[in-house]
């Protein structure tokens, strides 16, 4: 058996050789940590609704609080320990977005407060904003096209 016969045979051989992550354990941890973070969000949401805030504002408050907590935990060097354990459980909720903004900012502090912290904040999270906002613009335009009867253009 010659694994080097072609690039394809080598890649298949390497895939077989490489150890698998413990996927069941990882999914279990992602499930309960992710669920817990969302539940904390739900509690905050419920408190906001009880206080009379409308849905949109309540949602924004949840985002701001979760982002603030994640930024704080990242700054204390704690978030990456959570992330190593929980994987998608901390990456997928809005906490992952916050961590991906703070971590390069911390890393590049040695290069200054303007170009370092300021300039490198969005090296990981930038694509999220680019694609998310662009997708929303497209959604808006497509909605407009399909609903020109009920909406005026200007």
């Amino acid at each position: 058996m010659n694994p080097l016969e072609s690039k394809k045979t080598y890649q298949d051989y390497v895939d077989k050789k490489s150890p698998n992550s413990k996927i069941l354990k990882n999914c279990f941890n992602a499930f309960w940590v992710g669920g817990l973070i969302c539940t904390i969000g739900q509690v905050i949401l419920n408190i906001c609704k009880e206080r009379g805030f409308d849905t949109q504002t309540s949602g924004t408050i949840v985002s701001i609080l979760l982002i603030g907590i994640s930024a704080f935990l990242t700054g204390l060097n704690l978030f990456n320990k959570i992330g190593k354990f929980a994987g998608a459980g901390s990456l997928i909720p809005i906490t992952g977005f916050a961590n991906s903004v703070v971590s390069p900012a911390m890393e590049y502090k040695s290069e200054g407060y303007v170009m370092g912290v300021g300039g490198k904040m969005f090296t990981v999270a930038g694509p999220v904003l680019v694609f998310g906002i662009s997708a929303s613009i497209l959604v808006g335009i497509i909605f407009l096209i399909f609903n020109t009867q009920s909406v005026t253009l200007v």
Binding site: S21, N26, T74, N80, G83, G87, L91, G96, V102, S103
Partner: peptide, 17 residues
């Protein structure tokens, strides 16, 4: 890591390899 991969504080999981 800073030059080639991810910021140290990023909460990503590294695969076994």
């Amino acid at each position: 890591e800073k030059q080639f991969r991810f910021p140290l504080e990023l909460g990503n999981q590294r695969p076994p390899s």
